[in-house]
Design a protein around this nucleic acid. Sequence first.
RNA 1: AGUCCUGUAGCUCAGUUGGUUAGAGCGCUACACUGAUAAUGUAGAGGUCCGCAGUUCAAAUCUGCGCAGGACUACCA
Length: 913
Amino acid sequence: MKDTSAVAMFKVKPDRASEFLFKDAFGDVFILAWTTTPWTLPSNCALTVGPKLDYVRVKTFNPYTHEPNTVVLAKARLNAYFSEKGKDVSFEDYKKDGKSIPWTVDGEFYGHQLEGIRYEQLFSYAQPTGGDAFKVIGGDFVTTEDGTGVVHTAPSFGADDMRVARQHGIGTLTLVDLQGRFTPEMGEFAGKYVKNEYYPAGQAPEKSVDVELSIRLKEMGRAFKVEKYEHNYPHCWRTDKPILYYPLDSWFVRVTAKKDRLIALNKTINWKPESTGTGRFGNWLENLQDWNLSRSRYWGIPLPIWRTEDGDEELCIGSLKQLKEEIARAVKAGVMTADPYASFDPADMSDANYDRVDLHRPYADNIVLVSPGGKPMKRETDLIDVWFDSGAMPYAQWHYPFENEATFKETFPADFIAEGVDQTRGWFYTLHAIATLTQDSVAYKAVVSNGLVLDKVGQKMSKRLGNAVDPFKTLDAYGADAVRWYMISNASPWDNLKFDAEGITEVQRKFFRALFNTYNFFALYANIDGFDGNGEAALTESDRWILSRLNSVMKLADANYADYEPTVAARAIQDFVVEDLSNWYVRLNRRRFWKGELGADKNAAFQTLKRCLEVVAMLSAPIAPFFTDRLYRDLTASSVHLSNWPKHNEALIDAELEARTALAQKLTSLVLSIRKKEGHRVRQPLQQMMVPVTDATMRTRLEAIRELVLGEVNVKELVILDASESKLTKKIKPDFKKLGARMGKLMKSVAAAVNGFDQAQIAELETKGAMKLTVEGQEVEVLRDDVEISAETIPGLSVAADGPLTVALDITLNDALLQEGIARELVSRIQTLRKESGFEITDRVQLHILDNGDARFAQAIRTHAPYIVAETLAVTPEDQVLVSTLSPEGPGIHEVELDEVLRCALSLVRSAN
RNA sequence: AGUCCUGUAGCUCAGUUGGUUAGAGCGCUACACUGAUAAUGUAGAGGUCCGCAGUUCAAAUCUGCGCAGGACUACCA
């Protein structure tokens, strides 16, 4: 806002301290001080200079009265008030027009040389009380960024001013009342508001007091510069009017006396994120001020302090029991007529009893006590800061220390609290302060300071901008669980969240749908088979794998929940459900669920999947309480929220098994990539894949996952090639971490040399285990361990590689492979037809395939009839599947395409038996 | 003004004690697959890791100075 600002001239009194300013002075000597609030000038009590700043004495003319003047200001501010044109111009040439005022610097000194100088009061409406006044003092906060480098100090209207004035024994003068009007002492200004904004609408005078006082200064010859100045002045957030700082008597809690304990105890608190505890909150504690408890309001919790009128005797009441005793004394002494709480029994902790008293202001104001000296004591009228209530919550909620001591001790301190990070100075602090002062303890062991929820472009949500998301509409649209899962999994609670509803639909689509579908899959077959959770189980490798993964996730989620890292936990659970459980375990094992009778193998599959679903429900329950409860109830017929928190079983975690399954997944992906590249769909079996290995671990792992991978990629055999196979070409890559540590500056050249190795050199390093090189004139030794050697290609085969893993695929086809491919295609088509025809999964069918005259096709069906019949749940005898005519004609006849050229007709009807 | 947080693909985020081809998901493009799946698989396009300077053989990572966004606190004489 733009306000009238003034540079006032404070007339220096000649004495020993100011002697040097008067030597050869040009007229009177003044110190210049700038203010954007001229209404504070009558309350001026001191001038503050920066002790280490440079100041100058300038001879010049007053721009309004044109009198000769000698003025003092900071050297750094000279060019703000004096134009270059007037510099050292002869004083005789001044035309007294306020333009091109001549000036000359005569004398330079430090601020501390000015300290102690006295000056005449600017406006003498009233005199300060409670100390010295009208003296130059030193303060570190003085800058030369604006103003004159001298701060007009009115202790009544600014915290810095008050602090520096106190330090120097300066008194105060407050010529403004609580309504923001000048006091009666102010003569013609008395009763005027110091800010025009305080007048009722339409009643503000044309000239604000700032303007009037500035005019007065000019007339007095005490104005050096008056202008409109743009600055930020604090405004009330509700009324948008300028705020007035005003000195009030207040009651403080001297928390600074316990500062060290506050800091020490804070260091034991687990802050999330840590930086808020050490940074924002820690710094706040380092710069701790006493806690101002006083608040001036009509209704609220009163300060329990009674004082005599002269303030000599005072009493702080600690309980209702004590208050009643004091009231009894007061009644006896005659200062009160009766006990207003007569019906209250201090020994009775019941609600009914407490309903009989109201200790709030204004009721408590009627209580007058009697001092030991026999004088009446009235309650201090201030209320207690409501933040005190929040900080007192741990005790107040149990009515401790008056009762419930055992319960309190059990629940205090809290395991954790969570609130917005803006509560640093609020709840986080008051809880901590009261706990430290009263219990010498923390109030909470951990604190999560939540970040903000921003809109999707990162703007703070506000009603004003209209970008606020309605939480209830969001919950209605997406459900509480999806919203919660989105919020928790997307960003840590203390990070700001860019809220985007599309993120919620993604969570629904990925996590919840995968979980739901997995459950549905389980339930479908478990119901068909009447699985009851019991029965002998023979765990397969993939059962043990998913259980290992499950236990790993339990371990990780548990540790991260315990460390208040729910985001890490949620992501781990989600990845497990989507990737491991749904996309790998269920997909690979689905045949086990629907094929055959309920036996040890099927039982193992059911039990494993059920266990996974149960644990996922339990692990996810803190974030998605509704969905998981339903899931858990459907699985176990009891509530997930009554279940015990699942603990991982270290014995079920098999790192080697997890590693080799990861290898299988990677290998599978590589083979699928080759198939894609070569145009061979997965249903077409291929004869052989080859993987070169360079170490024994890899070989062992490959042996273990052989069947798994072959089944997954539909290849007949896996050949593990020894690294020494001559037909492999290899590539070599330096391990920068290992090599760099040893090579230092030579690293670049060594890396270049290693990368340039030919096949013979690579082989040499592999066999000998070390190799000497000369690089930049120095001999260095490269060890086998310093490099990564892997197979690059296998000549003549289609190859794919990912890091050190390489796989080659033999893509030549023979009749047997082609026939098997045809059979698989047929099964796939028939399965689709079953689905399209609306058959139930368990329905049996009659299947007949018309011979289309293609010899290979006929042969494929004859050879693979048992497979086709089994897969499609056909009851047709194997030798009757292939027919030369289809009968009866009817709705079960279908024409199917097997590939671009091959097509056939078949009949598919539901079988009665 | 001080303190603190954040800045990596169009979007949301990972990225270990600094180590060379910076990752994932979504979205986009193409193809495939589809009897659990509005799923999935494969490939592609998409990056000055906010900028500058420094330390180092090597910086998204460490240091300094800035910039942008955000939070809090104080204050502007």
